[in-house]
Design a protein around this nucleic acid. Structure first.
Length: 834
RNA sequence: GCGGCGGUGGCGGAAUCGGUAGACGCGGUGCCCUCAAAAGGCAUUGUUCGUAAGGACGUGUGGGUUCGAGUCCCACCCGCCGCACCA
């Protein structure tokens, strides 16, 4: 029996050698017609950030992607399935600060470790297209894209209040601040007024929103992006401070409530606040309030439940719809970042304004009545603030009595005619702040010249190489600023003295276009050949963690649209279909070193082999859901593969001994009810099931189907021929190949002599899927009472008769009146009695 | 508060179109093999009543539609995720 022992190490090493030496998974570009000629398919998993070793989440992600890639290859697709590394980033740089080891060195070590693991997992990667974003041959083109965006005005520099992480000593994009904290290190961010580089992603807000309808993405990811973009329709309305002669536009989604405005509020950061308060009795108080607001953390200020605070400004503005004078306030519940940093306050119909009005004892004027037929509760003053719909009241004779939604449009029209406002759309999305005061990133290809100002580096001078430095420690400015020799340069425009931009780019810039580079990864002349893109893009199936739902996925979509507008791409969306895999947890929590609950894929592969590890992470549950790691579960998967392997060995020996031909085709006629036919039917049922499950990403049930097939093989092994068993097991190996490629290939070869990846995906014979006999479910009043075996071609009357004569049915209908009979051929008969 | 997703045995989960709830796996129990153990094999395993045949109950809660509901509808409870003083 020892020769039947399942030895994954030997099996896996053997096939990995074959795939490496034969470059099995490489695919060549065949030009524009390539896409038409063969069914091209681009399957891509999000590129990993190489740090230490891959974790179990990587294993799951690549196991999912590889299963799809294999399935597509064997169903007639030419599959592009590349791999690369998101190699710039803070962890390597922080490591350098602590140890002095150059980030390039530690990154190279991590990449080597990732490569080793990916090969050990047997992932079918086209290694000829491998890339890493920190290589000059890659970031040269990142810089080129930056220049393209700069040229078209989509990259620009401006001074703004930006988020600063005191721990990482760099500014952050809005998307990288979560609950007022740095997404990476968790430090509370501060606001600083700094001049920084931005990408004009807000120009694309509408298209980023609209095109979500065109792509096959999980609804929750689309929802997150929609929330993030935060589109709201409304109007901009001008209020005028007559004393100072300044016009203040405000954004409101409720112009229908304009007649109910009773005060006016500016954000503490609003540049006019001090000017307005100057010379009023409130000057001192306003000054203190602003200072306090500015020093307060985001978190304190963001707490929704805190009581409203504010200070009067001692001024008024005129309400454009009725000329009323509204007192002005400064209050921190108004945000400078959204709208215009100023609001009209309608306490009767807005909860926040209502709260503020109660605190400051300001008038509350109801201008929208409750809908007709509304309860007493909604009509009285207790019902305020009222945010529902209803007819306008106490507003203006032209509008009173109109439903508010109708009035809203008429009021906006009227404002527009009077030049006091206009309909507009506001977005929550801000421009993408991309400069970072850190070393290990892509240099921004810009120089500053005293005479010419900001000057882009000439494209043929790229890449602007990242220089080696001595001291990586951030000091509030980029460590690059200390590399004097590198900073000092000549101006591309006038040849005079100039200084280089010392900030580097956000690493999300690097990963916003890598999927394009894979299509033409070795091109030294250009970022890509358009023909290569039209052959592969857009990515047919993208796979990755949901944690990138906003950041990476929004940035990549923006890049794609911007590059398309610049004439470099002929498609609008990078990822036609997206799959987000769930997290693997341990002890009910996310794995982390500090919790000490990390399951190392390397250890699992070492112990059970890659096939067990891959199958288990796919078997744990639906791949898009979180799943709890279980050592016993992994053990169980290993048992299954061992049993499959042992039985294959046994059957192969029986076949060898009998001198039989390989069991490559259906070995028996399917004419009877004998065990051979039963097993053959099971095999075809499994083919059908696994094929359907692969199409819907149900890997767990696909693997379960192969388990069922093996269970039947074991159960029927004494009663079936070696040929039938061989055929069933060969099918099992073939079906398991996308999940367990090494064992699948080994079994298939042992039984057929062929290479499974060169064999087409098995086809389920419809004749074998049909049953000639089935168990008819017999119900009485919807309750299961008996089962009888019936012929598949039995008609409704026959089925009814068989059900009525079933012994346990008779017990339950005896002495009762039959009211109705429901016959569902192929399923059941339900007898309704009274 | 708004939006999204989910709630099924001891556990992970299955049930694809309204038609046998609990596939498959883990765990448990009994047995076989063994000097013994490991490994492996066989059987069994929703709860409950019953010697059994069989019955009752059972998919978060309460209603409803239907011959029939885990699945559809209404109301609610709980959990997770995202957004949140966004005007």
């Amino acid at each position: 029996m020892t020769e039947h022992r399942y030895d994954p190490k030997a099996i896996e090493a053997r096939w990995q050698r074959v795939w490496a030496s034969e470059h099995t998974w490489e695919v060549a570009n065949e030009g524009a017609e390539g896409r038409e000629a063969v069914n091209s398919s681009y399957v891509l998993e999000m590129l990993p950030y190489p740090s230490g070793e891959p974790h179990i989440g990587h294993l799951k992600c690549y196991a999912v992607g590889d299963a799809i890639a294999h399935f597509r290859r064997r169903t007639g697709h030419r599959v592009l399935h590349p791999m690369g590394y998101d190699a710039f980033g803070l962890p390597a740089e922080n490591h350098a600060i602590n140890t002095g080891v150059h980030p390039r060195v530690s990154t190279a070590a991590s990449i080597a470790s990732f490569q080793r693991q990916f090969r050990a997992w047997g992932i079918s990667i086209d290694w000829s297209r491998e890339l890493a974003t920190h290589e000059p041959s890659y970031y040269r083109w990142t810089q080129w894209i930056f220049l393209e965006l700069y040229r078209s005005g989509l990259a620009y520099r401006k001074e703004a209040a930006v988020k600063w992480c005191p721990h990482d000593q760099t500014v952050l994009a809005n998307e990288q601040v979560v609950d007022g904290r740095c997404e990476r290190c968790g430090a509370e961010v501060e606001v600083r007024q700094l001049e920084q580089w931005f990408f004009r992603i807000t120009d694309y807000a509408e298209r980023l929103l609209r095109d979500l309808d065109e792509i096959d993405w999980p609804e929750h990811v689309k929802t997150m992006q929609r929330n993030w973009i935060g589109r709201s329709e409304g109007a901009e309305v001008s209020f005028t401070c007559e004393e100072l002669g300044i016009v203040y536009p405000v954004f409101t989604t409720r112009p229908d409530t304009l007649f109910g405005a009773t005060f006016f509020v500016l954000a503490p950061e609003h540049p006019d606040v001090m000017r307005l308060a100057a010379g009023t009795p409130y000057e001192r108080e306003v000054h203190d309030y602003i200072n306090h607001a500015l020093t307060e953390s985001n978190e304190e200020r963001g707490a929704a439940e805190r009581p409203k605070t504010g200070v009067p400004l001692g001024r008024t503005v005129t309400n454009p719809v009725n000329g009323e004078q509204l007192p002005m306030y400064v209050a921190d519940y108004v945000l400078m970042e959204y709208g215009t940093g100023a609001i009209m306050a309608v306490p009767a119909h807005d909860e926040r304004d209502y709260e503020f009005a109660r605190v400051f004892d300001l008038p509350i004027r109801r201008v929208i009545a409750a809908e007709t037929g509304a309860s007493e509760q909604q009509t009285g003053d207790d019902a305020l603030p009222y945010t529902g719909d209803g007819p306008l009241i106490d507003s203006h004779p032209d509008f009173d009595g109109l439903p508010n939604r109708e009035a809203l449009e008429l009021i906006v029209d009227w404002l527009q005619r009077e030049g006091k406002g206009h309909a507009t759309v506001s977005y929550r999305l801000r421009d993408w702040l991309i400069s970072r005061q850190r070393y290990w990133g892509c240099p921004i290809p810009i120089v500053y010249c005293d005479s010419c100002g900001v000057v882009p580096v000439e494209p043929d001078e790229l890449p602007v190489q990242l220089p080696d430095i001595e001291d990586y420690a951030p000091k509030g400015r980029s460590p690059l600023a200390a590399a004097e020799d590198w900073v000092r340069t000549t101006c591309p425009a006038c040849d005079g003295e100039a200084r280089r931009e010392t900030d580097t780019m956000d690493t999300f810039v690097d990963s916003s276009w890598y999927f394009l580079r894979y299509c033409d990864a070795r091109n030294d002349e250009a970022a890509w050949d358009p023909a290569a893109l039209s052959e592969w893009m857009p990515v047919d199936q993208y796979i990755g963690g949901v944690e990138h739902a906003i950041l990476h996925l929004m940035y990549a979509r923006f890049f794609t649209k911007a590059l398309a507008d610049l004439g470099h791409l002929d498609f609008q969306e990078p990822f036609a279909s997206l799959f987000t895999q769930g997290m693997i947890t341990k002890d009910g929590a996310k794995m982390s070193k500090s919790r000490g609950n990390v399951v190392s894929p390397a250890a699992i592969v070492e112990r059970y082999g890659a096939d067990t590890a891959r199958c288990y992470v796919l078997f744990m549950g639906p791949p898009d859901q979180d799943a709890e790691w279980s050592d016993e579960g992994a053990e169980g998967m290993h048992r299954f593969l061992s049993r499959l392997w042992r039985l294959t060995g046994e059957v192969a020996e029986r076949l060898d001994a009998g001198g039989s031909a390989p069991a490559a085709s259906n070995p028996v006629q399917h004419n009877g009810g004998d065990p051979d036919v039963q097993l053959l039917r099971k095999a075809h049922w499994a083919i059908d099931k696994v094929s359907a499950d692969l199409r819907r990403f149900a890997f767990n049930t696909a693997i379960a189907a192969v388990m069922e097939l093996l269970n039947d093989c074991s159960r029927l092994r004494e009663q079936t021929s070696a040929q039938t068993l061989g055929y069933a097991l060969q099918t099992a190996g073939s079906l398991l190949f996308p999940f367990a490629p090494h064992l699948g290939a080994e079994i298939y070869e042992r039984l057929t002599g062929d290479r499974v990846w060169e064999a087409p995906w098995p086809h389920a014979d419809p004749a074998l899927l049909e049953r000639d006999v089935y168990e008819l479910v017999c119900q009485v009043n919807g309750k299961l009472r008996d089962r009888v075996s019936v012929s598949s071609d039995a008609g409704p009357d026959e089925l009814k008769r068989r059900c009525l004569t079933a012994p346990n049915v008779r017990v339950h209908i005896d002495g009762k009146e039959i009211v109705k009979e429901v016959v569902v051929p192929g399923k059941l008969v339900n007898i309704v009695v009274r």
